[in-house]
Design a protein around this nucleic acid. Structure first.
Length: 288
RNA sequence: GGUGGGGUAGCGAAGUGGCUAAACGCGGUGGACUGUAAAUCCACUCUCUCCGAGUUCGACAGUUCGAAUCUGUCCCCAACCA
């Protein structure tokens, strides 16, 4: 099996810096595993690496579609796997757990494209009842209020019968490192980095996006919608910044839950681990 | 110094005699998730030896079978008048 290295962790831990150091050391190339950084023009707000920061290290799957263009995890899976085949030593770097899973396991996505807005006339409860009749196991796993997921499960039930109950199997020999820090330290970093984003011109980026016809309110990526609110005068600057920091912290927390419970990974506390220790780890993985 | 107002769990804020360990919101924590994933959703959040018990609603002292809710004194807070 092909060897790949995955570097993941919650937003703000410091994946980017380390990934560059490691890629230079091992002559690797980076495949982005961050759902938001796929999009062009969303730079500052997604903490996308700059050209200078790349230091000649090759990056893939960054800036490949326009913000309004459709891009699915299925597309990601196809392109990503092709890249893995082409690159000698791929470093998959990013915090989108599901994307990583789709990339490095046999995660089944080969059905027809998603349909939209089914059953608008049904209530959450009715929808859930419908799912109970089609796939009771799946229904028991999901709360009726989670309409979006209930709809998706209904879709799966209609297309291929049942939601897959077993976890997917790896298709590569992957070393999965999840960088962490203690909560306080992580939250401080997130707050600080958020301030930096504004100093670096996040607002200007948003104004520019608007000029080019992007509807900030339609972007799912953290911050853009709130900056839209601020630009519309519905939110004070301070409120907006605080709220964005908070959403970033909440996101980091959700990521941690995923890594802990959905991913088979080695946790590395960056507050207590040197880069040399990480290098040693990778060296022994590559030799094995 | 004077007047009327206010002090409720980490924060904001309901509650104005029993149905109140105290609504709700935020924050925090844990969790779910095989396709919007930086998405979507759920649970817990006074304390403990946690299917039961113990301590709370500025402090103390009262009234009452029973008080966060009524009375008195005191301490703080913001506001207004001097």
């Amino acid at each position: 099996m092909k060897k790949v290295i995955v570097l993941t962790g919650p937003t703000g831990v410091g994946k980017t810096n380390i990934s560059i150091a490691l890629c230079k050391r091992f002559n690797g190339e980076i495949i982005n595993a961050d759902a938001s950084q796929i999009y062009r023009h969303l730079n500052i707000g997604t903490a996308k690496i700059t050209n200078e920061e790349m230091q000649e290290v090759k990056h893939h799957l960054l800036d490949i579609v326009e913000p309004h263009e459709p891009f699915s995890i299925k597309d990601y899976q196809i392109i990503g796997r092709k890249l893995i085949a082409e690159i000698d030593l791929p470093f998959i770097v990013g915090g989108s757990g599901l994307y990583i899973q789709a990339l490095i396991t046999d995660y089944n996505l080969d059905t027809k494209p998603r349909s939209e807005n089914q059953y608008p006339e049904l209530s959450n409860e009715e929808l859930h009842q419908l799912l109970v009749s089609l796939d009771p196991d799946a229904a028991s796993k999901i709360h009726p209020n989670n309409r979006r997921r209930v709809l998706r499960y209904l879709e799966i039930a209609n297309e291929r019968g049942k939601v897959e109950a077993n976890p997917p199997h790896p298709i590569y020999d992957a070393l999965v490192l999840c960088f962490i820090r203690n909560r306080t330290s992580l939250y401080e970093r997130i707050n600080l980095r958020c301030e930096e984003m504004f100093q670096n011109g996040w607002i200007e980026e948003c104004i520019e996006l608007r000029k080019n016809g992007v509807n900030l309110h339609q972007l799912k990526d953290i911050g853009y919608r709130l900056i839209g609110e601020y630009l519309d005068g519905n939110l004070s600057y301070k409120e907006m910044v605080e709220k964005i920091k908070q959403e970033q912290r909440h996101y980091a927390k959700r990521q941690m839950t995923w890594f802990r419970n959905k991913m088979n990974c080695t946790f590395i506390d960056l507050d207590e681990t040197s880069i040399d220790e990480i290098i040693t780890l990778i060296e022994s993985f590559l030799k094995s």
